[in-house]
Design a binder for these strands. Structure first.
Lengths: 202, 202
DNA sequence: GGACTGACAGATATTGAAGTCTGTCAGTCC
DNA sequence: GGACTGACAGACTTCAATATCTGTCAGTCC
C-alpha cells in the first residue's frame, strides 16, 4: 500500500471532486477514484455519503468562523466593530457569490442538505455578534436587557446580507447603500433598545 | 351565445384553475374548459399565458395593498402604527402559509415568474412604510434625514417576516419573539436614526 | 363583421426502459 | 487479522420516444 487512507485525505479529495463536478454530479466513486482506492474504502471512514458531505461543509464553515473572529478589534468602539464585522461577512459572501458562483452554489446546496449545519453556523456567528454587543453594553455604548435576544435580532435584521436565499440581490448596484441604511438603523436601535414587552410606551 | 366572455371572468376562472391544479399543472386549455369556450378565445383577451398569470397575481396583490392600507390608524403613535402594520403583514402571510400551503406556494411561484411584479408589490408596501415613518417624523417621534431610504431599511430589516423565501421558518415556535425583538430594535433605531455617512461618530 | 372555433406547428412535459449510484459484505491480500 | 476490494441489490438518474400544451390563423356562425 502507498500510505494509510485518512479521513483528512478523503475530505480533501471530496472537496476537490465537489469543486470539479458540482454537488449534483459528484459521486462517492469519483472521490475513491481521485484517491486511487475503491469506493468501499471510503465507507470505512464515513458511514454515508451525506456524512461525508457534512464533514466537508463543517470544515469549510469552521474556517469562516475563525476568519470572522479575526475581524474583531478590541480597541474599536462596539458600533465600529459590529459594522466592520457585518461588512466583512457581507463582502466575503458577496465576493464568493460573484467570483466563484459555482463553488458558492455548491456550498449553498451542501448547507441546505442538513438541518443541523445551518444551526451550527448561525449559532456560532450569532455568538460572535452577542460578544460584540456585550462589549458595547459594558462600555455603556449600547443598551439592552437581553444580549442573546438582541444579537439574534441583529442577525435577523441583516439576513438579506448573509442569507444565501438573497444572494441574487447582492448584484444590485444599490446593495451597499441598503446595507449601510440597515446597519445604521440597527446600530441606532442598539444605542437605545427596549425589551419587546416594554415597546409600546413613549 | 350565453354571455360575452370578459377579462374578469377569465381571471376568476384562472384563479379557480390555479387553486385546483396548482401552477405547474394549470393550462390555458383548463381555463377555457372551465369557461366552456375554446382556448383560442382566451387568447383574444390575454396575449400570452404569462400575461394571464401576471394579471391574476396583480389582482391578488392589489387586494393585499388595500387591506394593508386599512390597518393604519391616524390616532395611534407612529411606533404603534408601524408595529401593527408589520404584525398584520406577518400574520397574513404566515396564516396563508400554514392554512393554505398550496395556494401560498402557487402565488409564490406566480410572483417569482415575473421581475416587475415583486418590484410593484414591494414598492407599494415600502411606500406605506414611508408614510408611517413620515408621520412619525412630523410628530418628532422618529428622526431620519431620508424617509425613503429609512423605509426601505425597515422593509429589509424585517425581510425574514414577509419574504416567501423564509416561509419555512415561520413555523418555528419562537418566531413571534424573533419578530418582536427585530421590530423593537428597528423602532428604537427610528427614534434616533443617523444617515449612513454620519454613522461612524459618537 | 366581429366573436369564436378547432386544426396545426413548434415548444414543452411525461414516461418508462436503460444506465448509474449508494451502501453492503463475503472474500482477498499482506 | 485488519485494511481493502469488487460484485451485488435496490434506489435513483438519464434519455429518448411519446404525449400534451401554447400560440396562430383560416374559417364558421350568428
Amino acid at each position: 500500500m502507498a500510505e494509510a487512507l485518512t479521513g483528512e485525505a478523503i475530505l480533501a479529495a471530496t472537496e476537490e471532486v465537489l469543486r470539479r463536478y458540482g454537488p449534483a454530479k459528484a459521486t462517492v466513486v469519483d472521490v475513491a477514484k481521485a484517491l486511487g482506492v475503491s469506493h468501499g474504502s471510503v465507507y470505512r471512514h464515513f458511514p454515508t455519503k451525506a456524512a461525508l458531505r457534512e464533514a466537508v461543509t463543517r470544515r469549510w464553515l469552521d474556517a469562516i468562523h475563525v476568519e470572522m473572529e479575526s475581524v474583531l478589534d478590541e480597541n474599536a468602539t462596539a458600533s465600529d466593530n459590529l459594522r466592520a464585522w457585518l461588512q466583512h461577512l457581507f463582502d466575503k459572501k458577496r465576493l464568493s457569490h460573484t467570483d466563484e458562483p459555482e463553488l458558492f452554489a455548491t456550498y449553498k446546496v451542501l448547507v441546505g442538505e442538513s438541518c443541523v449545519i445551518p444551526e451550527y453556523h448561525v449559532g456560532h456567528l450569532v455568538g460572535q455578534v452577542a460578544r460584540i454587543i456585550r462589549a458595547g453594553v459594558d462600555t455603556q455604548e449600547f443598551v439592552t436587557d437581553d444580549v442573546e435576544t438582541t444579537a439574534q435580532a441583529v442577525w435577523t435584521a441583516t439576513e438579506k446580507f448573509h442569507h444565501p436565499a438573497h444572494a441574487q440581490e447582492w448584484g444590485d448596484p444599490h446593495i451597499q447603500a441598503a446595507f449601510d441604511a440597515v446597519v445604521s438603523l440597527v446600530v441606532a436601535g442598539l444605542r437605545y433598545n427596549r425589551s419587546p414587552s416594554a415597546a409600546g410606551d413613549a
